[in-house]
């Protein structure tokens, strides 16, 4: 007991001095579990995050837009893989993590349960959803767990193009015909609030946050990140000549931040519980893809086994 206490104290001390924890270092079991949960959820979000956009690849309005969207979706697949690898360094099994997602047991970001009915949604997702994700991920570049931090550095480098391509789409639409501008405004109206929800519940409703901050897994609270995102995004919307759908949104001279209206947390929890507009569709798409890829995985295994067997025989004969 005292020995365990000493280890935990030493661990905290080490983290407090801004040292990184690496896979073979001693860590409290709860630190490990928190990270496995957070990193795997993050990985699932990247993977499911491909779906709302993949929807538009074949219908992109130009080749330029199409190659960009394709590259973005491919990046998201890659980001999912970096993150699964980071979780594996903590002893998690990738097949288990994937299975939990397919069984509906694992969470992923609730934002991906919203539909993408128009091309403007590709703009709004890049600008707002990736913008919110980047705010969170920039913070996570300094997380205390080494492999997670390294994955985040890589991801952040790659993601800045995601947000820029989204904003460029919004700019084109906002400066286009009245119908195009309306389409951009409509997308902003639909994505604004779900994007704010991406940062998670308010600080006083987020009981695990304090421990994560203490261990420096998180470096900023949900509310801090949300405020940062709003402050940064409002001028960007103004530049586009679009209106953020919040009548309470107002610059506060005193705080130096924007005040904003109440978030509909009931909607947030409802989507998390599985009742969002696209939860079933997203999970169904993942299950279908996994099932239809089964023969590929089997064939790759069979080929690998055959080659290994042949190599063994040749070695034996020599």
């Amino acid at each position: 007991m005292t020995k365990e206490m000493n280890l935990e104290e030493r661990f905290q001390n080490y983290v407090d001095q801004e040292n990184k924890i690496e896979p073979k270092d001693w860590m409290p079991e709860k630190y490990r579990k928190t990270l496995v949960r957070q990193i795997s959820q993050h990985a699932h979000s990247e993977v499911v995050g491909m779906l709302p956009e993949a929807n538009w690849i074949t219908r992109a309005p130009s080749l330029r837009r199409k190659v960009a969207l394709l590259a973005k979706v491919q990046d998201e697949a890659g980001h999912g893989l970096y993150l699964y690898s980071a979780a594996e360094t903590l002893g998690a099994d990738r097949a288990d993590m994937v299975q939990d997602l397919l069984d509906g047991k694992a969470k992923y970001s609730s934002i991906f349960n919203y539909p993408t009915p128009t091309w403007a949604d590709m703009g709004a997702i890049g600008w707002l959803v990736d913008g919110a994700a980047i705010a969170n991920q920039v913070m996570l570049c300094r997380t205390s767990y080494g492999p997670y931090s390294r994955a985040m550095v890589r991801i952040c480098k790659e993601e800045s193009f995601h947000q820029r391509q989204g904003y460029e789409i919004m700019m084109t639409l906002a400066k286009g015909t009245a119908v195009q501008k309306k389409m951009a405004q409509d997308a902003l109206n639909r994505w604004w609030w779900p994007a704010l929800m991406m940062f998670g519940p308010t600080d006083d409703e987020s009981p695990n946050s304090a421990q994560s901050m203490k261990w420096k897994i998180k470096r900023k609270s949900n509310d801090e990140l949300r405020q940062e995102f709003i402050d940064k995004t409002v001028p960007q919307a103004e530049y586009l000549g679009l209106t953020i759908p919040d009548e309470h949104l107002k610059w506060n001279e005193e705080t130096g931040h924007y005040d904003f209206g109440p978030i509909d947390w009931e909607e947030f929890y409802n989507v998390i519980k599985g009742n969002g507009p696209c939860n079933k569709q997203r999970l169904g798409a993942r299950q279908k893809a996994h099932k239809e890829g089964e023969w590929v995985r089997e064939a790759a295994n069979a080929y690998a086994n055959k080659q290994a067997e042949r190599a063994r025989k040749e070695k034996g004969a020599a």
């Binding site: 893989l81 970096y82 690898s85 594996e88 990738r94 390294r150 994955a151 890589r154 790759a300 295994n301 080929y303 690998a304 080659q307 290994a308």
Partner: peptide
């Protein structure tokens, strides 16, 4: 650079 899963070296 990182790690990944594959059935054999070629893959």
């Amino acid at each position: 650079a990182g790690s990944l899963h594959a059935p054999d070296a070629e893959m």
